[in-house]
Design a protein around this nucleic acid. Structure first.
Lengths: 338, 338
DNA sequence: TCAGAAAATGTTATCGCTAACATGAACATG
DNA sequence: CATGTTCATGTTAGCGATAACATTTTCTGA
């Protein structure tokens, strides 16, 4: 006999229907043990009958908390972002928190200050910024008081905790892996200039070579696409000194592989190749692409735990880099003997 | 001289500081024009000084709305889901709405009723379910009164509006395209059995052939992965009657292409191949894979507009299928002449 | 200059919920 | 049977913002 009720039903309505006070209904809703079972059943019946649902606004106005974390993303369409998002949402689900998502439209001027101001008008106890592009006010940005803020970025921030994949370490792993196989040098294909992660991979690459006293060959600029990798690969195929290639993502590595194939060069017999992301299912030469896999889920998880202070997270500001894993497959071998 | 203020600052605090009433502050916040400029400036100064931020709870308690839509996803890690998510968030940003995201953990029993109950305790005016798996209570599910609900799914629902990609139409396009090139028949590689979209593509495939009186050859069962595509491709390469293959996603089509290459068959000279998703950047034979691209952003956009009733959406329940686009590239040609 | 209109600002009540306290009922103890 | 103790339930107030109404101030025009 549930009445169809278009208006919202409040605690008071249920209280009236059940012949008790609103407070008692509230106790039933929250599962307090100091309610007589028969009263509880009566109240429950009234709730079902009226279709009562607790009001988020009323509850959180009283509580002063929202149990929700705001997430600002610059753009979503990217595997890494997606995994971070999943890390955050699953951590949130585990802690009984909701996620309020806001996208900074690509057209807008990207500003942390502005994003933070807008997010602060939403029901959030803290916020996470997922930055994958440079924003002009990164260093100047000050988090709003009372709203803990974690930024997912490789760069350290003066006041906010930060977390991201360890891009420098990734380059070190790759360069080291290739050199250990006997290559004299490693050629690098970069990402687009504005990408922070690309810039860090590049910096790590230079540093890895420099720390070993190896002069870095000219870097080829790509834009993450397989096409740009193909182009770079075609140029490297013509360079007889090039025996090892570090493409800064898998899509470009794929392009390199196709270019090498077209140029009649074999992988890994003639050229060793490493990518980054572990985003390719099947790879042209069957043995699969050697690559670095990042734990983006872990990045999201860490950001969530830090911003909520769960899991005994240390209090103060932290800068954490989550290391990736070198996945050794079939595209790295010793250089051809001259 | 901004004071560092750890407590939250309310309208009343600002009112005290500015020497006006709370109502006047409220008017300034909402940009009412009936405030004298000098009063407005005084209030603004006090707001800045105290670091005032409007309370979402207070505002929405009074307003009775949240200007936020709940989104339930079963899993996020999938390109299509991601694009739908982006469609939803960008539509939401345009309408000044927030998105409250909830993930149904994979381990849980998936139930629309349960998800809807949990979501209803969050600050949402309506909700969107993004279903990409079967849920047990799909037909029985009744949306909560007052909370408009849209389900992203191919299946029609008795009470909720639904929207998704037109999978049947996709199969019709592909089969028709292949037959027009003179192929006598089309072989199909399916997705995993539990996938709704896979089932619909398969049904559309059968229907497209049946409507033309062509008997369908045995269907090969895949699981979306390139590896399963490779396996199916290897079997089809051994079948001399097979000249046209419809792989129900691009990854499997990729696997087919590699298998064909390994078996010494050329694409499209010996075998024509079509995939679905347009998810591959570069394709082995340079000319690129002919495929169908779905407009998942549009699906998300529609769901949002429908649930909020913006953009003159018709009132009642609707079931909308957004058509995909056949992207003609280089993997379809006439069958080899015997 | 002053009534009357218009503009600016203040007061009250309320949205739904719950902490803190108050009350009343049932029960135990001497 | 009086008294204290526990348990169940009710009452009050207030979280922050704002619509509706009330009041004060300012402006207009004869």
């Amino acid at each position: 006999m549930a009445r169809s009720q278009s208006q919202t039903v409040s605690l008071a309505d249920v209280a009236d229907a059940a012949g008790v006070s609103a407070q008692t209904v509230s106790r039933v809703v929250r599962g307090s043990d100091s309610v007589r079972p028969e009263t509880r059943d009566k109240v429950r019946a009234a709730m079902d009958d009226l279709g009562y649902r607790p009001s988020f606004a009323g509850r959180s106005l009283k509580a002063g908390r929202y149990s929700s974390i705001g997430l600002v993303m610059l753009n979503i369409t990217d595997t890494g972002n997606m995994l971070r998002l999943e890390g955050i949402t699953s951590a949130a689900a585990a802690e009984d928190h909701a996620i309020t998502l806001m996208e900074m439209a690509p057209g807008e001027t990207l500003s942390l200050t502005e994003a933070s101001r807008r997010m602060s008008a939403l029901p959030v106890d803290g916020m996470i910024f997922n930055l994958n592009r440079m924003v002009p006010d990164f260093r100047e940005f000050k988090p709003l008081p009372g709203l803990d803020t974690v930024i997912i970025t490789m760069l350290e921030h003066p006041t906010c905790s930060t977390v991201d994949n360890d891009q420098m370490g990734c380059s070190e792993m790759i360069v080291s892996h290739l050199l250990e196989h006997g290559h004299a040098n490693v050629h690098f294909i970069s990402g687009p200039e504005l990408s922070i992660s690309g810039a860090q991979r590049e910096e790590g690459y230079y540093e890895a070579l420099a720390s070993r006293g190896i002069p870095a060959p000219e870097v080829l600029r790509g834009d993450w696409t397989a096409d740009s990798g193909y182009e770079a690969g075609a140029r490297l195929a013509a360079d007889p000194t090039c025996t090892a290639i570090y493409a800064s993502n898998d899509a470009m590595a794929y392009g390199v592989a196709v270019a090498m194939h077209d140029a009649g060069k074999r992988i890994p017999e003639d050229v060793s190749l490493v990518g980054v992301d572990d985003s390719l299912g099947l790879f042209v030469p069957h043995n699969g692409l050697t690559t670095v896999r990042f734990d983006n889920r872990q990045v999201g998880l860490w950001a969530f735990r830090k911003v909520t202070g769960t899991h005994d997270m240390p209090r103060g500001r932290q800068h954490v880099l989550i290391p990736g894993t070198l996945v050794k497959r079939g595209t790295v071998a010793a250089p051809p003997s001259r």
